[in-house]
Design a protein around this nucleic acid. Structure first.
Length: 207
DNA sequence: CAAATGATCTACT
DNA sequence: GTAGATCATTTGG
């Protein structure tokens, strides 16, 4: 399945949930790094008070959101970079924020880029960007086999997709509590997980 | 130019 | 495991 096919005709929340278990693949000069997506959040464009594209307000920073589905949107939040994927056709500024990944290959490189214990390596949106060694130079570019890509063939199946309110959205009326955050229940590479919720044996995957 | 924005690290329990 | 300090950039006035 192509990425275009994967994204087309589905709502952004559906895409956010469907991305769990797909694999991010990054080409580097040291070889490829890959990691399964464990946590996402959906941002619903002009209507969503928590989104950068709220009220269709286009700025230099968020311009990539109006590009076609499959475009990478990266913005900097203080000292961190946050990775998003544009999910809808050009002109509809919706995206999914990648908040957690589970290393699948290239672990040595990930730990070189971010020398911390494995449990803290990629369980947060800024952490995973550090571990991947990315800055915002890919912002506005499409997913591509030469840079950052999504592998849809070697997916894992979450045993259970859990959802919750998005993190960091406060005082945004109904959008504060909207269940637009999705994560693999039991997976340790998810932000703010409680230790007793972790499934040590399977990490929450069926396969 | 002032205000607003969230994640991460440290230091401690 | 948690509370509080720390970090830079963007935006709107």
């Amino acid at each position: 399945m192509t990425i275009t096919t994967f994204l087309s005709g589905r709502s952004t929340p559906q895409i956010a949930a469907a991305l769990l278990g797909t694999k991010l693949v990054l080409q580097t000069s040291q070889g490829p790094i890959s990691a399964w997506i464990t946590e996402t959040e959906a941002y619903l464009g002009a209507q969503d008070a928590g989104a950068h594209a709220f009220k269709n307000h286009q700025t230099n920073r968020n311009r990539a959101l109006w590009l076609p589905a499959g475009t990478i949107y990266i913005y900097q939040m203080r000292t961190q970079y946050l990775l998003n994927l544009v999910t809808q056709p050009a002109g509809t500024p919706e995206c999914v924020l990648i908040r957690g990944i589970e290393p699948a290959s290239g672990l040595t490189q990930l730990q070189h880029n971010r020398p911390v214990p494995l449990a803290n390596l990629t369980n947060g949106p800024g952490k995973l960007m550090q571990a991947l060694g990315l800055d915002k130079s890919l912002n506005g570019t499409p997913l591509s086999a030469e840079t950052l890509n999504l592998a849809l063939t070697t997916v894992k199946q979450p045993r259970l997709v859990a959802h919750s309110a998005r993190i960091g959205i406060v005082n945004k009326a109904d959008w504060t509590t909207a269940p637009l955050r999705y994560f693999v229940a039991g997976n340790p590479f998810v932000s703010q997980v409680r230790k007793h919720d972790i499934d040590v044996a399977t990490h929450g995957w069926l396969t």
